[in-house]
């Protein structure tokens, strides 16, 4: 009897905790949209998304430069991180001796736990300098610097999830391929990687989501110039940086204040869609496997 009771109590407490956290998340979303949608009574959506000028004192709010900066930084990060991450995952899953894997994989996963501001400091001291001096650019604080830092930050995600899905590919596929006279590398490229493709895609999309949402590491290295970047060597200012840098100075209830929340909505929607897509990809892989 007493055991029944405590069982019910535990269930009740866990349930309340779950409901509580769901409510909090919904409150945050509602709050974000309530404040953010207000911006569109000053600026229409088209002008907000495509407008090139962001000038709070003139109450012009065009977020194109921020959106393009966010996209460029992310695309750059993906271009750098995907090949390195995928090859590392293949190495760990298929080529490295068991012992090496057992050391390297946790070490890489540890990277994911380093506070992002530390990545930012590293980027500022090392990467920005390298771009300015070695690559001989007017400024090192650039989209490229942001991309490199983000690439390093999303590598653990890409490596870890890709490696897991590569190792989940049934051994029988590989044996079948080798038994037909395929080399090890042919089997990897034509059977194992394609069979793991849904997990690999999911890892990339998760990486994109993380890159777009990342704030502290990026704000330190991208230069934060409110101008549409046209090359990876230009400075830029991603959505996250703008929110971080301008929130303090915007008067509560001002058009500026609401527009910053609208940037938040954009960011939220992008990351949300990416997460959903990534989950769908992962689910697909599970069903087939």
């Amino acid at each position: 009897m007493a055991r029944r009771l405590s069982e019910d109590m535990v269930k009740g407490i866990l349930g309340i905790c779950a409901i509580f956290s769901i409510i909090i998340i919904f409150l945050i979303i509602i709050f974000l949209f309530r404040e953010g949608l207000e911006a569109f009574s000053y600026t229409n959506v088209i002008d907000f998304v495509f407008g090139r000028e962001w000038n709070p004192s003139k109450e012009t709010f065009g977020a194109a430069a921020f959106i393009v900066s966010s996209l460029l930084v992310t695309v750059g990060a993906i271009v750098i991180a995907v090949p390195i991450g995928l090859l590392t995952a293949i190495f760990l899953a298929e080529l490295s001796p068991q012992r090496v894997r057992e050391i390297v994989k946790p070490a890489i996963e540890l990277l994911a736990g380093i506070p992002s501001v530390i990545f930012g400091l590293f980027g500022l001291i090392v990467i920005v300098k390298y771009i300015r001096i070695t690559l001989d650019q007017p400024t090192g604080e650039s989209i490229l610097a942001g991309s490199i830092i983000l690439a390093i930050m999303i590598l653990p995600t890409i490596i870890s999830i890709s490696e897991d899905s590569l190792r989940q590919v049934p051994r029988a596929y590989k044996e079948g391929s080798l038994a037909l006279g395929a080399t090890h590398w042919e089997s990897i490229a034509r059977i194992i990687v394609p069979s793991a493709s849904s997990g690999i895609m999911a890892s990339i999309i998760l990486g994109v989501g993380r890159a777009i949402g990342e704030t502290m590491a990026v704000v330190l290295v991208v230069g934060n110039v409110e101008k549409l970047p046209t090359s990876f060597f230009d400075s830029g200012e991603p959505l996250t940086s703008t929110i971080l840098l301008e929130m303090g100075e915007a008067a509560v209830g001002s058009p500026h204040y609401y527009s910053i929340f609208a940037l938040g909505i954009l960011l939220f929607l992008i990351v949300m869609v990416l997460n959903i897509v990534s989950n769908v990809w992962l689910g697909r892989g599970l069903k087939r496997g």
């Binding site: 029988a172 596929y173 079948g176 391929s177 038994a179 059977i191 069979s195």
Partner: peptide, 15 residues
């Protein structure tokens, strides 16, 4: 392995 082929216990077609 091209000359000596193999069929396994559990059917293992590629996906």
């Amino acid at each position: 392995r091209k000359r000596v082929g193999m069929v396994f216990q559990k059917p293992n077609p590629f996906p």
